[in-house]
Computed example of a mutant assay.
Amino acid sequence: MARRPARSRSSSAPLTRIPSGPVVLGGATVEAVPDRDDPEGFTLLVDGVPSSYLRLGDPGFLGFEYMQQMAAVLALLPGGPLDVVHVGAAGCALARHVEAARPGSRQIGIDPVAELLERVREWFDLPRSPALRLRAGDGRAVLEQLRPASADVVVRDAFAPDVTPGHLATTEFHALARRTLRPGGLYLLNVADRAPLRGVREELASVGAAFDGCQVALVAEPGVLKGRRYGNLVVAALAPTTEEDSTRLPDLGGAALARAVRSLAAPSTILTGGELATFVGQAPTRHDPPAS
C-alpha cells in the first residue's frame, strides 16, 4: 500500500482493455482507477488499498515513493539482467521497471489471487514468461519451492488487505529469503507503519537476526521516519558473500545511495550502522509460532 503518486507526463501509447469499475477476482475486489491528471496512469486498488501505480506507455515509471526508493537501492547492483522474485505482485509495477531498466532480467511475481494475476497481465501488457512468470499461491510457500541461491533480488511487498501477513514478517521468513539469494544478493521489504514505528523496528530486528553480520539499511521520507505521519519505509539487506568478493558488494551506507535517495522527488533519508542500531533499540524479533 502507498500514497497516490505525483503527477507525471503522458505518453502516446494506446490504452489496453481496463474495466471502468471494480471487479471481483478470487474473492478480492479489484479496481484500476484512472489518474485524473494522466490519461495513461492507473492506481490499482485491491480491497480498497492502493497496491500499484502504472503508466501504460511508460513501463519504467514508478509512481509510489517507496518504489522509487527501492529502485535507488537496486541501482547499486552491478549492471545487467537480474533474477528477481516479488513476494506480492499486484500490478507488477516494480517488475515492469526492472524489465525496462535491465532488459533480459528473469522475474517471478507471486500473488495469492490467481485471477488478479491473469487480469493484470492483460490490462497492463506485462512481460511474458520467461521474462516475467506469474505464480498464484502463498508467497512463503512458493519461496520455499525455489532453489537456494537462485535469485539476485527478493522483494517482499505483500499486504492483506493493508497489513503484511504475519508469516511473511518473521525471522524465519527473512532467513528463507536469505537462503533464496545468491551471495551478495539484495533483499527489499516494504513496511507500512505509523508512530511509534514499532512495526518497522521489529521488522529490522528480525531481518538483522536473519542477516546477521550483513549490511542492513532503512530508507524513508523524514516525516515518516520521525513518526509524523503514516507511510511506507523500505528495509534493505545484502546477503553475505565470500571474503574475496566482499569488496564488490554495494555499500548501503555509502555516499552514492545517500545522494540518490536525497535527490528523489520526495527526498528521503537512509539509516545504517550505528544510527540504525539506535533506531531499532531493544525491539524484539518476530518468530513463527511453535509447532503444535
Rank of each mutant, 00 (worst) to 15 (best):
A141D: 10
G137A: 00
S206T: 02
D157E: 06
V153R: 03
H167E: 05
G199V: 15
A210K: 09
A209T: 03
D157N: 09
A175E: 08
R140A: 02
Y187A: 03
E202P: 08
A209W: 01
G139V: 01
G208W: 07
L146M: 12
A175W: 01
T171L: 03
G139R: 00
R179M: 09
A149C: 09
A160M: 10
A195Q: 14
V153D: 05
A151S: 13
L181P: 07
R198T: 15
L134S: 04
L134W: 05
N190R: 03
L146H: 06
A175G: 11
V153W: 06
P165V: 10
A136M: 00
S150N: 11
L168N: 12
G166Q: 14
R179H: 10
A175M: 03
G213N: 02
E202H: 12
V154Q: 08
A141E: 12
L204V: 05
V216E: 05
R140K: 07
G208A: 12
L218G: 04
T180C: 13
H174Q: 14
L204I: 06
C214D: 07
L197T: 04
D138R: 00
R135E: 08
L188A: 12
L186G: 05
A177F: 08
S206M: 02
L176P: 13
D157R: 06
R179K: 09
A195D: 14
G185Y: 13
R178Q: 15
V219A: 13
G213R: 00
H174W: 13
V200Q: 02
A177R: 05
C214Q: 07
R182G: 12
A160Q: 15
N190K: 05
P148V: 02
V207H: 14
L186P: 06
A160F: 13
V142D: 02
L186S: 06
L188K: 09
R140Q: 01
R147K: 15
L197Y: 10
D152M: 05
L181S: 07
E144A: 14
E144L: 15
S206E: 03
L143W: 03
A210E: 09
V207I: 10
A149R: 13
Q215H: 11
A175T: 08
P196I: 10
R178T: 10
V155H: 15
T170D: 01
G185I: 12
G199R: 13
P196N: 15
E203S: 09
P148E: 11
V153T: 10
F159P: 00
D193N: 05
L168P: 12
F173N: 04
A177T: 14
E202W: 05
V154S: 09
T171A: 10
G137M: 00
D157C: 06
P165Y: 07
L197S: 11
E203W: 11
D212R: 15
V200R: 02
R179G: 10
L188D: 11
R135P: 00
T170S: 09
P196E: 13
V142Y: 03
L146N: 06
A151R: 14
A136P: 00
R147I: 03
R182P: 10
D162Y: 12
A217P: 07
L189D: 11
F211R: 02
A169M: 07
A136S: 04
